[in-house]
């Protein structure tokens, strides 16, 4: 049953990820990326990490993708729509990236990872455990990340400002 759900999520994720990079219209790409990120949230639930699934939906689908759609909306996308997906000189890059993907798959599926055991795992992670780890062991990275978010916010506002006074 778990394999069935994993295959559904994985196949839809890969198809929508391919759709992201092949649509011409950036709005369609953004919608396909939303579908892909939702599948990844489902995979997080399969991995018994409900907190990360919720964070994925809130931050990626709620904040990041809405930001993308807003930016696509306020910019003029008519010129951007004209671009074709893969001109003739880019087929070499397609072949190279597919070859690297196949190599990754061969190494991962054929290596020692295929017999990787479930080491005392299989339990659902509670939000309490994550909060405890975040506020004790990882307190310094947590605070640094909050400063980084502040800096990013200031930087984004400064760069998107219309004119300097």
């Amino acid at each position: 049953m778990e394999k069935f759900f994993f295959l559904i999520f994985a196949v839809v994720a890969v198809i929508s990820a391919l759709a992201v990079i092949s649509f011409r219209n950036p709005v369609h790409s953004a919608l396909a990326l939303i579908a892909c990120l939702l599948q990844v949230a489902g995979i997080f639930i399969l991995l018994r990490s409900p907190f990360l699934a919720v964070v994925q939906v809130f931050i990626y689908l709620g904040a990041v993708m809405v930001l993308f759609l807003f930016v696509v909306m306020i910019l003029d996308i008519k010129k951007a729509q004209m671009e074709a997906f893969a001109p003739a000189n880019k087929w070499l890059m397609c072949v190279i990236t597919s070859l690297i993907a196949v190599e990754f798959l061969v190494v991962i599926m054929g290596g020692s990872l295929s017999g990787f055991p479930l080491r005392g795992g299989g339990k659902e992670t509670t939000i309490q455990a994550i909060g405890h780890a975040l506020f004790t062991e990882y307190l310094l990275p947590f605070e640094l990340v909050s400063i980084l978010l502040l800096v990013a916010m200031v930087g984004a506002i400064v760069m998107a400002k219309k004119r300097w006074d």
Partner: peptide, 22 residues
Amino acid sequence: VSWYIGLGAILFMIGVSGVVLR
């Protein structure tokens, strides 16, 4: 676990080709 890692690798390469091709 290799299935999850394989899915991650496929999605990563799709992202790389999105950056390189478009």
